[in-house]
Design a protein around this nucleic acid. Sequence first.
DNA 1: GGGATTATACCGACCGGTTGGTATGTTTCA
DNA 2: TGAAACATACCAACCGGTCGGTATAATCCC
Lengths: 201, 201
Amino acid sequence: MSPRKTESAKTVLIQAATDLFRRVGFLAATVDDVCAAAGVSKGAFFHHFESKEALAEACLRQWKDMVGVMVASAPYQSMSDPVERLDGCMNFFIGLFEKPESIKSCLAGTTVQEISETHPKLRDAANECFVTSNRLLHGLITEAATHGGRQVDAASLAAMWTAGVQGALLLYKASQDDHVIRSTLTHIRDYIISLVKPASC
Amino acid sequence: MSPRKTESAKTVLIQAATDLFRRVGFLAATVDDVCAAAGVSKGAFFHHFESKEALAEACLRQWKDMVGVMVASAPYQSMSDPVERLDGCMNFFIGLFEKPESIKSCLAGTTVQEISETHPKLRDAANECFVTSNRLLHGLITEAATHGGRQVDAASLAAMWTAGVQGALLLYKASQDDHVIRSTLTHIRDYIISLVKPASC
DNA sequence: GGGATTATACCGACCGGTTGGTATGTTTCA
DNA sequence: TGAAACATACCAACCGGTCGGTATAATCCC
């Protein structure tokens, strides 16, 4: 009855694989594991994707799009003050990792470490996610800075934020203590805001 | 002729495996690959290590020790001003990734992403590396702060630095552009220093 | 309209290369 | 000479991917 019954298996596979890859990684997740998680046969898998790598590529593309959509529909978008909007954006992301049930892992970050040297295609797909994230932040930072009459290197600050997110998630995986996420991202947020808002003295 | 001829294979294996793991990761590096890189037979491998996991554990332990040693013998240690010493420490690490021939990858960071969910022992060993790094930074930060008469959350700042290093390396792997490393770490350094040095206004 | 043809989605047994690990020696050296 | 340090051949499990086949529905042709 769904509008596209024919594509359901493909969609389910991408969703299940994304979850699994985020949790255990691309290499550790078996094709059979993905099939089991998706409730789909192996035949169906290779009917829709020519390889495990192709599936991961599809996952990363969807991940990139999701970042964009999530951001576009986020609450902070409505704020009129550019500095507050930038602040709201970063707080929005900090809040994402607050919920206990959320998977504290980025598909792009998890994947790129495992395959950067062996699967250039996946590496590029993952990099696209970071580029998207950076572009978004870059825009918000420049707007906030020009509004505050200050000059900043928006690109490097955006990259700093993205790096902070990835590093914080990595430290969380090692320590299993989600405090690191909030505390480091809060620091980075404060730093960026301090450079962007009108100088105080 | 070396004082410990008997341990040479073990040492060589750890060194070769560390390099290989840093480059391609723990899962992608085969036992045979490690043996080939070390110029050692498979029999020798399993004579010294009961499993691939055990080898990785040994690598991580040595990695942790190496961080400590490297830091202890670093040039910034001689500086008398605590703020300069902290600054020197961070600059020292920034410089490490400057050399083109250096492997821009942290064994602990690379490993933990792949195995945090499947090999708790390795996860803990990797976490120990971060704890060591944090402890070191924590000390330098508190000294600098108290000397400057300022109050800071040294622990969260230390974690922020460690997260920054890991995130920057990850972004480098994705983009293959080593500018991110210097630029993000420089930002974090500036932030930490600004919180630690005597207030200016 | 309705039989024939074709395309799509899916199934699951199976294949062959790979991989971590072992069994059985041979060499080295104290 | 005996134990530790290696080497070589081998194994069983696993894993990505294939293959022959089925069910269903859309398309074509008269």
